[in-house]
């Protein structure tokens, strides 16, 4: 075996990884079909899609670059407020709003990324948490601009690109959210399978070794943090456009914690973890909540403990994998 061949091999292997898995086609087709087949659940599905996008942005940080964040809602909420204020003061065209929110949240991410470069998991957890808490206080104090605890209302939502109305059209607004998510997932997939994405994983695996093979660790981490913040901002803007009010809960600790939970439930490092996690979490919350509106938290907590007991990196999927593995072993034994 000569070197040329190994390089060739690894190139094909990488290409294979970058190619779309058939399950991904099935998933997006099913998502598109749900626009037409599940009209009664559009509101819930819209929320799931937005949380998925939010969780995806965290996955870019956690799953690929290994940065834990307990304050990701800072960028989500910032994007939401920017989108709402932009719509009120300039134009209610949603796509423009998304772009503005994405850029604004990205800039905030860029500025704050310098704070999370150093330190252990715990340090990063606390610094990101601190950033989010400070942002929360700012949003609360500037109530002349943000409405504070009363919330910010009166945001106009014009038709998308002037032709596709989404205001009070659940089906249209779900379709709009879904298309935005699809585009951003597509981009994210390209990012993580680019040389840039692989360099991130190298840093995650061993920062010292990564820097010794010439990867500029800090620059790469700043870049991915900025991208993730921008994604989170767009997710926030989407929620602002599909809900009549932007309130402090967009930016609170609970939201940062929830998105982290959803991502861990679904599993990190394969982009779809957030989708799985948020779908499970929200569907469970809704249906258990309908049965016992007061104590659904108990059952969610119970589920989390069980998932944690049996799951590994891939969240709930690893439970299926282990069951399958056990079955195979049983077959192999006799």
């Amino acid at each position: 075996m000569n070197t040329g061949n190994t390089v060739q091999d690894s190139v094909t292997a990488l290409k294979k990884k970058r190619a779309w898995h058939w399950l991904e086609y099935v998933f997006w087709l099913a998502a598109a079909a749900s626009v037409f087949l599940l009209p009664s659940q559009h509101a819930l599905l819209t929320q799931i899609a937005i949380w998925s996008l939010f969780a995806l942005s965290l996955d870019l940080l956690l799953g690929y670059a290994g940065i834990v964040s307990l304050g990701h809602a800072a960028y989500f909420g910032f994007g939401a407020y920017v989108a709402a204020l932009f719509a009120i003061n300039f134009t209610g065209e949603p796509i423009t709003g998304l772009i503005v929110a994405g850029i604004a949240a990205g800039l905030l991410g860029l500025a704050t990324s310098l704070l999370v470069l150093r330190g252990t998991d715990l340090t990063r957890l606390m610094v990101t948490l601190g950033i989010a808490l400070v942002m929360y206080e700012i949003a609360n104090q500037m109530s002349w601009l943000t409405g504070g605890a009363d919330g910010l209302t009166g945001m106009p939502v014009n038709p998308v690109l002037g032709i596709f109305p989404i205001y009070f059209r659940p089906a249209n607004s779900y379709a709009y959210v879904l298309i935005v998510c699809f585009v951003l997932f597509f981009v994210a997939k390209r990012i993580v399978h680019s040389p840039f994405g692989y360099s991130l994983r190298a840093i995650k695996g061993n920062p010292l070794r990564a820097s010794s093979i010439g990867i500029p660790n800090n620059l790469r981490l700043i870049a991915v943090y900025t991208i993730a913040a921008s994604y989170a901002g767009i997710a926030g803007a989407l929620l602002a456009q599909t809900t009549p009010v932007v309130s402090l809960t967009y930016i609170d600790f609970q939201r940062s914690a929830d998105v982290l939970l959803m991502l861990i439930i679904g599993g990190t490092g394969y982009l779809y973890g957030g989708v799985v996690g948020s779908a499970l979490f929200l569907v469970a919350q809704k249906f258990i909540g309908n049965i016992t509106p007061q104590y659904w938290e108990f059952w969610i907590g119970f589920a989390l403990v069980v998932i944690a007991l049996f799951a590994r990196d891939r969240g709930v999927f690893s439970i299926f994998e282990r069951i399958l593995g056990a079955l195979r072993n049983d077959k192999a034994k006799p």
Binding site: S40, T46, L239, V245, P293
Partner: peptide, 22 residues
């Protein structure tokens, strides 16, 4: 019909929509 919104505005709006529609 009693529903919990956990004090979060986006839930309230979603639940209101679902209660009316469904």
């Amino acid at each position: 019909i009693v529903r919990d919104d956990a004090g979060r505005a986006e839930n309230t709006a979603r639940i209101a929509g679902e209660l009316i529609q469904n």
